Simulated scan of single mutants.
Amino acid sequence: MTAASIVAAYEEPYARRTSRTAEQLLAAAVRGALGAAGLGHGDVDGLGVSSFSLAPDHAIDLAWRLGLRLDWIMQDPHGGASGINLLQHAVRAIEAGDARVVVLVAGDHLDRAAFARLTATYNRATAEALTPLPLRGPNALFALLTQRHAAAHGLADADYAQVPLSQRRWAARNPGAVYRAPLSLDEYLAAPVVAAPLRRFDCVPVVAGADALVLTAGGPGVRVRAVASRHNPDGQEGDGIVTGLAQVADRLWAGAGVGPGEIDLACVYDDYPVMALAQLADLGCAPDLHAFLHGRLARDGWPLNPSGGQLSAGQAGAAGGMHGLVEAVLQLLGRAGERQVDRARLALVTGYGMVLYRYGACANAAVLEGVA
């Protein structure tokens, strides 16, 4: 178990529309997290940032505008994997004595035009090979992945529906989720098709917001039992329905000293239901996907993304990579309000993303434990 403690987590409320800039959202999240930790800006000597829309500013510009004097700073551009990347580096920095109090923050404000520009120019491969088709963002790519995954595992639309349906039930207890109204299977199946077989409720709603964590050297809070990452595991030449987590699962669980059956809740990166299921399968949490979906998830109400996940709470750009961490920490600190998971002690958090050409190339996971 690491010597660093996560002592506070905060989410600046998500909104479908706002006049605030990315800088203002990030600053608000930093203030909220420090307030939850009982600390001030003057206590901070480390900062990690992830944001697509902070540009042309960088982490150091945000530090300057916040009045932070730092010994350690980092900026991570890797989207859905950025939160756990930042966490891994921050823990190592504290253990090495490079920093004592680190704030990690991620967030974005991407209006319709900004989101369209981001998805059209995400990287050179996208701009040169995909946008001219046009694919109009990642939905078409993940529709193809869902088709392939369904054929490989014998799953139908009503099976994949169990992920957004389960998470919507949790979202009803989260005042910060943008979608909280009950969702039935009939409503799910009747929703407009975005890219077959993906329907509206299979795709994350784009929102504005930010998430932040505060880490300190020791003390009560949440500890990282293990973290593991695997990036570009197959050079974009695999089938895309197995993530890099499959290559590090054994190392993750051995480092954590627990197995997947001992986890009390999971916060899995859920840009699409298919990828949430792929990550759970890769980590040994759902060896039989059909049984998992209709048994453990639908019948037993296992806490998968008890915030509602991105599918119901929303995806605030790069904050999507921090959202699951914030939810897991709140749960393990016993501060999740009405959606609090009873006797939550161990949480699994995953990150996934950064489409290089056909599918995400970055994957990581952490096992967290609440420590009194």
Score class of each variant (00 low, 15 high):
Gly235Met: 04
Ser53His: 07
Glu262Phe: 01
Tyr179Arg: 03
Phe142Arg: 00
Pro220Thr: 03
Leu346Asn: 05
Tyr272Cys: 01
Leu185Val: 14
Arg343Cys: 12
Thr216Ile: 01
Asp300Ile: 11
Val274Lys: 03
Val102Glu: 03
Glu262Tyr: 06
Pro134Phe: 08
Ala143Trp: 11
Leu165Thr: 01
Gly261Ala: 14
Ala365Glu: 04
Arg69Met: 09
Ala278Val: 10
His231Leu: 11
Val44Met: 03
Gln279Ser: 10
Asp159His: 09
Tyr122Asp: 06
Pro220Gln: 08
Ala196Trp: 14
Leu283Lys: 01
Ala156Glu: 10
Gly244Ile: 11
Asp157His: 11
Gly218Pro: 08
Trp302Thr: 00
Asp43Met: 06
Arg199His: 15
Leu118Thr: 07
Ala9Met: 01
Gly259Phe: 01
Ala276Val: 12
Leu68Trp: 06
Leu283His: 00
Ala129Ile: 10
Ile241Ser: 06
Ala228Asn: 09
Asn364Val: 04
Ser229Arg: 07
Gly314Ala: 11
Ala156Lys: 12
Gly209His: 13
Ser184Val: 08
Asp300Lys: 13
Val102Phe: 05
Ala37Tyr: 09
Leu133Asn: 07
Gly240Ala: 02
Gly238Asn: 00
Gly351Val: 12
Val204Lys: 00
Ala81His: 13
Val7Tyr: 05
Arg20Ala: 14
Gly83Asp: 13
Gly324Cys: 11
Ala37Arg: 01
Arg225Asp: 15
His78Ile: 07
Arg112Ala: 07
Tyr122Ala: 08
Val214Ile: 01
Ala8Glu: 12
Gln236His: 02
Asp300Pro: 08
Gly259Ile: 08
Pro303Leu: 10
His58Glu: 14
Pro260Asn: 06
Gly80Gln: 14
Gly257Glu: 05
Gly221Phe: 00
Ala256Met: 05
Gly295His: 14
Thr119Tyr: 06
Ser5Glu: 06
Ala161Trp: 10
Leu66Ser: 02
Glu369Asn: 01
Trp170Phe: 13
Gly360Tyr: 13
Pro13Gln: 11
Ala347Leu: 01
Trp253Lys: 00
Ala172Asn: 08
Pro13Glu: 08
Leu283Cys: 06
Ala90Gly: 00
Arg345Trp: 01
Asn364Cys: 07
Ala37Gly: 11
Ala15Lys: 11
Ile60Phe: 12
Arg299Trp: 14
Pro138Gly: 05
Asp211Trp: 02
Gly317Phe: 00
Arg335Cys: 08
Gly209Asn: 04
Gln147Leu: 07
Glu11Arg: 15
Asp342Phe: 11
Leu289Gly: 12
Pro220Arg: 10
Gln315Asn: 13
Pro56His: 04
Ala278Gly: 09
Gly259Tyr: 05
Asp342Met: 02
Pro192Arg: 13
Gly46Cys: 12
Ser184Leu: 04
Leu66Asp: 06
Thr146Arg: 03
Val194Ile: 15
Asp211Lys: 04
Val101Glu: 12
Gly244Ser: 10
Ala217Met: 11
His231Tyr: 14
Asp250Gly: 10
